[in-house]
Structure formats: C-alpha cells, structure tokens
Amino acid sequence: MLFLSNVINGLSLGSIYAIIALGYTMVYGIAKMLNFAHGDVIMVGAYICFFAIARFNLNPIIGILLAMVVCTVLGMTIERFAYKPLRQAPSLAVLITAIGMSYFLQNMAQLLWTPNIKVFPSVVGNGAIKLFDGQLTISYIALITMGACVVIMLMLSLFTGNSKMGKAMRACSEDKGAAQLMGINVNTTISMTFAIGSALAAIAGFLLCSAYPNLTPTTGSMPGIKAFTAAVFGGIGSIPGAFVGGLLLGVIEILAAAYISTELSDAVVFMVLVVVLLVKPTGLLGKKISEKV
C-alpha cells in the first residue's frame, strides 16, 4: 500500500512535469530551440496567482485565468523581441539569448517581488480521499493535478489533430519552407506555440506551488530543468512523449527518494535518462531520423 501511495505521489509530481514539458516540446518541435526561459515563465505565473489569490482575494479560478493571460502575453513578447530577430541565427546564439532571458526574468522578479520566500495560499485545502480503511490517502491537490494533466493532454491532442492552427503547427514542425509555400503564416504559428506553452506554464506554476508552497524567484528553474529532461526522455518534439516522459520521471523520482535515498533521487533520475537515451537515442516516443548523406 505504501508503494501504491508513492506511485500516486509520483504521478502527481509527474503530471506537473508533463504540463511543463509540453511547453518545451512544442516550442522545440516548431522553433527547434531550447527555451530555457520557460521555467521562469512558470515562476511568473505562480507569482501572479499568488498576488491575485492571497493579496487581492480574487476567486482562485479568476486568479489562474489572470496568470494564464499574463504568461501568454509574456511568452509572446519574449518571442517577438528576443527570439524572432534570431530566427536565422545559429542555434547556440538563440540558446544564449534564452539563457539571458531566464536571468532577466529571475532578476526582474527579485526586484519586483523581493527574494524572500512567499508562502503560496492553499486553495484546495489539505483534504484527502481515504481508501482501503484509510491505508491509502490521496490528497485533493494530487487528484486535481492529475486530472488537469489528462484534460490538457486530451485538449492538446484534439487541437493539434483537428484544428486548422494545430495542423499548421504540425506542418511547420515538419518543414517550415514547404509550410510557408502552402500559405501558412509561419511567424503567427510560432507565436501561437509560445502562447499555448506559456499559458500551460501558468497552470503548471499554480499546481507546482499548490503542492510545494514555497515561492521564490528561482522556484521555476529546477522543475524547468527536470521537465526539459522529461521532454527529452519521451522524445523531444513529440506531445505524447512529453506526457509519458513527465509521468515516468515523476514516478522514478519519488520511488528513488523512497527506496534508495532522498539525496540521491536526482542522480537516479538522470541515470535513468542516460540509460534510456543510450538504448533509444531519440527518446521513448521520438521519431527515428535517418541521416541523409
């Protein structure tokens, strides 16, 4: 029973990773860049939620919606001013710009909101469902996190599978030049991808801080790196891959902390990643790309 409750905790943590990883993987699939500032967009989203809910006493739903709007605008602004001018530049230049953006957001947050820890309000409460005569408890926040992850996943699959914009995104990720010739506005599509990724980051920020309530300007960076690892783990560029990779990473992390050592859980997570990439170099669900000579 302890094992089962660990697995559920892992799935709940993994759901947060999966939602963040979706942002990484979509941007990578289309813009072919590692958006290092994504983790910090999560942090901004969490701060907006915090101020809306704790300071202005707004309804949590309105708080989350507000955070989504702010993050969407932020993501699109970053893309427009920092990444778009570098579309033709070598990928390392874009990577450094993204790192610069990450520093910028962290330090801006430090100036605006001070580096002190803010305790995120518990919106969902500490309630839990008890199963098997109280042997297995599942907290509401874990349930909500897993539910949100599944809903987001389904909606995203429907969106990329059926809507016009979604099809445009898939086309851009396959071949930008050909997509442009077919009349797809590549710039709008990329901008839209950043918007969706950032809106998801806001939700992830809320869920992350509901589960781990200490909010600081660097809250987003470690989950950001882990989620990025999850995206690679599942096969970067693949949306189901991000989902599977995120969940697996969360479960492995919690199980390693429970059965091996809390301090070494990060090392175990990264070890598993290395092994998976050695066996399957493009990730679990990644497409195998044959080399052209």
Partner: peptide
C-alpha cells in the same frame, strides 16, 4: 544581474 542579462541578450541580438 539585471544589467548583465540585458547586456547578454543585447550582444546576441546585435551581433546576429
């Protein structure tokens, strides 16, 4: 550190 970040982004944007 904010200035450092801006210098970093600025150099990348200008040189490319």
């Amino acid at each position: 550190m904010l200035a450092y970040a801006i210098v970093l982004i600025g150099i990348m944007l200008v040189t490319h």
